[in-house]
Amino acid sequence: MTKSNIAKLQGYWYFLKKNKSALAGLIILIVLLFVALFAPYLAPNDPLQRSLAHRLLPGFWAGKEYAQFPLGTDYLGRCILSRIIWGTRTSLSVGFIAVGISTLIGLVLGLLGGYFGGKIDTFLMRIVDIMFAFPSILLAITIMAALGPGLEKAMIAIGIVYSPQMARVTRSAVLVIREMDYIQAEKALGASHLRIIWHHILPNSLAPVIVYSTLSVANAILDAAALGFLGLGALPPTPEWGAMLSNSRQFLLSGAWWAATFPGLAIMISVLGLNLLGDGLRDILDPRLRV
């Protein structure tokens, strides 16, 4: 890594430290990644272990005798805290892999359409417009209906659903960059299209893509939870926040509020952290927004 790149990273870190909300989002993300990575060591119980004798037990607030299950148990007697910890790995995997798929597809479509323009751009953007005509969750459900339920299928479905937005973001950045003087100079010198795209267009269009990708991870986690809530995401007994919320919602009014409340809080905290970090990255990577 060159000294200029190190200096640039140090500058980004300086502005990140000044942005308290972005720093809070980064801390939340680091904690989530830590929990996901060390789930086997952090979970107090087996997340799949059933015990009807321990069905819908309260947690630590009910007394020391319930310390075995700090956040209580669900309708099958499984430890809610352990399932939330393991569900962190599931939800983050869906979010990052789905956004990775959408970013790959969106970059290809956006780079080709924005750089070449003309009929290629028109054709690719009409495909994008057709996908935009459907609500994202409805399109994801349609794709899941074709692929079948399952965690891997949910990643693919969400990745496809988010690719049009990523293509639009990439294309808008490429349309500006391709008119820059240094791009025209490269063309005049006889540089190939592949060289121009790989060495100049792509690196300089990544800033908005990174910001949008970070925000999309939060939305992908929400959509994965929605698919799990509908029974189209992770298959039982895999711990997944949306499925946990779906299976426990009927107990909210029957006294066992903890069964659905804590998975819902896990979704809220993760989405909040990623949104705070995404907003902060937007401010850091755009010099016009730095304060």
Rank of each mutant, 00 (worst) to 15 (best):
T2I: 02
N5Y: 14
K8D: 06
G11M: 05
Y12E: 07
L16V: 07
A22I: 06
A22L: 00
L23K: 00
I28Y: 00
L29I: 14
L33F: 15
V35I: 15
L37Q: 04
P40E: 01
P40W: 03
P44I: 01
N45D: 12
D46H: 02
D46T: 03
P47F: 06
P47D: 06
R50W: 04
A53H: 02
H54F: 13
R55C: 04
R55Q: 14
R55P: 00
W61I: 09
A62M: 09
A62F: 10
A62L: 04
L71N: 06
L71D: 03
L76I: 10
G77Y: 11
L81Y: 01
S82P: 09
R83F: 03
R83T: 06
R89W: 12
T90L: 10
T90V: 15
T90S: 15
S91P: 03
S91N: 07
S91T: 11
V94C: 01
V99S: 08
V99T: 15
S102V: 03
I105P: 00
I105M: 10
L107K: 08
G110H: 08
G110I: 07
L111K: 05
L112S: 12
G114D: 11
G117Y: 09
R126Y: 09
A133F: 05
L138D: 13
T142C: 15
A145V: 09
A145I: 02
E152A: 13
M155S: 00
M155P: 02
I156P: 04
I158M: 14
G159P: 10
I160G: 12
I160V: 15
P164K: 14
V169H: 08
V174K: 09
R178S: 11
E179I: 02
Y182H: 15
Y182N: 09
Q184K: 15
E186V: 01
K187G: 13
L189D: 05
N204P: 08
S205P: 12
P208Y: 08
I210Y: 05
I210C: 03
V211P: 02
Y212K: 02
T214E: 05
V217L: 06
A220W: 07
I221G: 00
A226T: 13
A226F: 03
L230S: 07
G231F: 11
G231V: 07
L232S: 02
P236Q: 05
T238G: 08
T238P: 04
P239C: 11
P239I: 12
E240G: 08
A243R: 15
A243I: 03
M244H: 02
M244A: 03
N247Y: 14
R249H: 12
L252A: 13
G255W: 05
G255T: 11
W257Y: 15
T261M: 14
P263M: 13
L265N: 01
L265W: 04
A266I: 00
A266M: 12
L274V: 06
N275F: 01
L276Q: 01
L276V: 03
G278F: 09
G278W: 10
R282G: 03
D286K: 06
P287C: 06
P287I: 08
R288N: 10
L289H: 08
L289D: 08
